[in-house]
Structure formats: C-alpha cells, structure tokens
C-alpha cells in the first residue's frame, strides 16, 4: 500500500522540496514537537488546575476533608467520606461483575466459539463500549431501576437482609436507586474494556504452549485457566486496572441512579453518592467559593486515584509487550 503511494508522491515533491529548503524542515519539526508537548503539558495543567482550585478546601478542612461525613452547603461544612465510600463501593461491585464475565467472554472468543462467530460477537461486545454513558444512565433510571426495585431488591432484602454481618448490606427499602444498581450498571459499562484487553492478550499466547497442553490431555478450561491466564497474568491485571479506572471516574451513568444522598449508609440498597456524581450534580449550583473549591478538591482526589490506577495498568500492560519483544 505504501509502495503505490510512493511512486505517486515521490516524483512530484522533489523539486518543490528543494525550493522549500531546510527552513520548512525546521518549522515542521518545531510544530510537531510543540504538539507533542501540548499532550504532556495538558496532563500537568489538569493536575495543577485541580490542585490550585481545591486548595482552599484543603486549607479550610485539613485532613477532615477526607474522613468527615458532613456535606452541608448552608453551614459550609464539606467533607468527602460519603462520596469516596460510594465511589469505592460501586467500583468494587462493578469489578466483581465485570472481571469474571470478561474472562468468560474472552475464553469464549478465543477457545470456544466457532471461527465464524468470533468476529460478530466481539464486535457486538465492543458496541457496549460505544454506547454513550448517558444512555446507560437513562436506561438505568427509566428501565433498570424499576426492575431492581420490583423484582430483585425485595428478594435480596427478604433473604439476605436477616443474615448476620453481611445482612447490613441488604437492609432498607427497595428503592431501586442506590449503590447496588449503580455498581451493576458500571459493571456492564466496563465489561467491554476488560474483555477486549483479555481477548487481545489471550490471542498472544504462543500456540505451541496451548498445543502442548492439549497434547498432554488438558481440557479447554484447563488450557484457559492454567496456561493462558498465568502466561498473560500481568497484562490481564493491567486490563482489570484499566476497567477499574473507568469505573471510578464514570459520571453520567451513576449520576442518574445513585440518588445524590449525603448520608453515610452501609446498605447497598440505600441511595448514595460518588465523587463524579456529586460534581456533576452540584457544581453549577455551588453558590460559594468554598463550595466550589470543595468540589474541585473532590475532582483532584478522583484525578489522583484514577491516575495511579491507570498508571499501574500501563505498567502491567507494558510488561507483557516487553516480555514478547525479548
């Protein structure tokens, strides 16, 4: 493909380029270098802007901002434990669903499905990643929340609520809105990201390894569980981190179904909050500088946490690439 355009392109520009001389060369190099620095600076600028914007909140509340539970616009007391807790819990529920399901999908696509089925199924699963997050939110609010509150949550409350210790997670009214519903929707959302990483890295497992295992009499599941998974361990962990980063920072899907409650509750049935949802719900209505600074400080927290998670994902994914390169 490049060979044909070569013939076309190389004949004409020769003369033009001599006229342009080395200055065109320098200008182009400076332009692309500047563009690359924009990328680098953009991330630094985001971090710096969040830091300066959130500073007044950290100054006013100190460490209490992280472990306090009061969020009151009238008395101007802001502390972030409730949204932090909600973010972590919904992301955890999401990962509990998305990780095993993604593994199953990847195994299906690599080892189980007939060849003709693989392309269409993989494309359909990737469509899930293409659906805009606000659609998940609307579907969640208008369809999934009623389903949860009528069909699923009454059963959970009746059967799991009375259990010792665990029961606390399943007590309350079956509102449908809350952390359990949000976590499930988040799980569906991040599933295509994790499964596509898993599928890609499973496809990289050397065929000799798999064939040797089959020749020893391994079953398909044993090949998947004992050969493919250990071989791609670090990259699979990277894919999971990537999904976790998405789940932590997702905004629209959870804003619709979390309920924007500022009370700390351990029940998954109760309305809760997440960092991203608080910012989305309240930022335009924040009527004092301290209120706005507190929301930006929440944004900084989210940014730092997702940065660490995504950086971890990158490092884990790079390891497999390097292992293959050597």
């Amino acid at each position: 493909m490049s060979a044909e355009s070569l013939g076309l392109a190389a004949s004409r520009p020769m003369i033009a380029s001599r006229r342009a001389g080395p200055s065109g060369e320098r200008v182009f190099a400076v332009l692309v270098t500047a563009a690359a620095w924009v990328v680098l600076i953009a991330l630094g600028a985001v971090a710096a802007a969040m830091f300066w914007g959130g500073l007044p909140a950290f100054r006013a509340f100190g460490w209490r901002f992280l472990y306090g539970t009061e969020w009151n616009a009238v008395t101007r007391q802001f502390a972030a434990l409730v949204p932090i807790y909600g973010t972590l819990v919904t992301a955890l529920i999401a990962m509990l669903i998305a990780v095993p399901v993604s593994f199953g999908i990847a195994v299906f696509l690599i080892e189980v499905a007939p060849r003709w089925l693989r392309g269409p199924v993989a494309a359909a699963i990737e469509l899930l990643a293409g659906v805009p997050s606000i659609i998940y939110g609307m579907w969640g609010l208008f369809v999934f929340v009623p389903f949860m509150s009528e069909q699923v949550e009454p059963w959970l409350i009746d059967h799991l609520g009375p259990l010792p210790v665990f029961g606390v997670l399943f007590q309350g009214a079956p509102l449908g809105i809350g952390m359990l519903t949000s976590g499930i929707i988040l799980g569906i959302m991040v599933l295509p990201f994790i499964s596509s990483v898993m599928r890609d890295v499973f496809a990289l497992v050397p065929v000799e390894l798999k064939e040797s295992a089959y020749a020893m009499g391994c079953t398909r599941w044993e090949v998947a569980w004992r050969i493919m998974l250990p071989y791609t361990r670090s990259a699979v962990a990277g894919g999971i981190f990537l999904g976790l980063g998405r789940a932590l920072g997702e905004t629209m899907a959870v804003t619709f179904v979390l309920g924007n409650a500022h009370d700390l509750s351990f029940s998954l049935m109760d309305p809760g909050n997440s960092i991203a949802a608080v910012i989305a719900n309240e930022f335009t209505e924040a009527d004092s500088a301290l209120y706005r600074a507190s929301l930006i400080a929440l944004g900084l927290l989210l940014f730092v946490v997702t940065f660490l998670v995504l950086a971890g994902a990158r490092l884990l994914l790079v390891r497999l690439a390097r292992q293959r390169g050597e």
Binding site: V46, M50, L248, A280, A311
Partner: peptide, 22 residues
C-alpha cells in the same frame, strides 16, 4: 508522552470538564 497520552485517554471526562471550567 505515550504514557501520559494513555492516561489522558482514560482520564475521567468530568475532571477534564472541571479543568476547562477553571
């Protein structure tokens, strides 16, 4: 730069919104 770009690729979009606000 590739590393930073990959982070930007998955960074929460609401944080980008806050950034453009400030």
């Amino acid at each position: 730069i590739r590393f930073v770009n990959d982070i930007l690729l998955s960074a929460p979009s609401i944080v980008i919104g806050l950034f453009c606000y400030t």
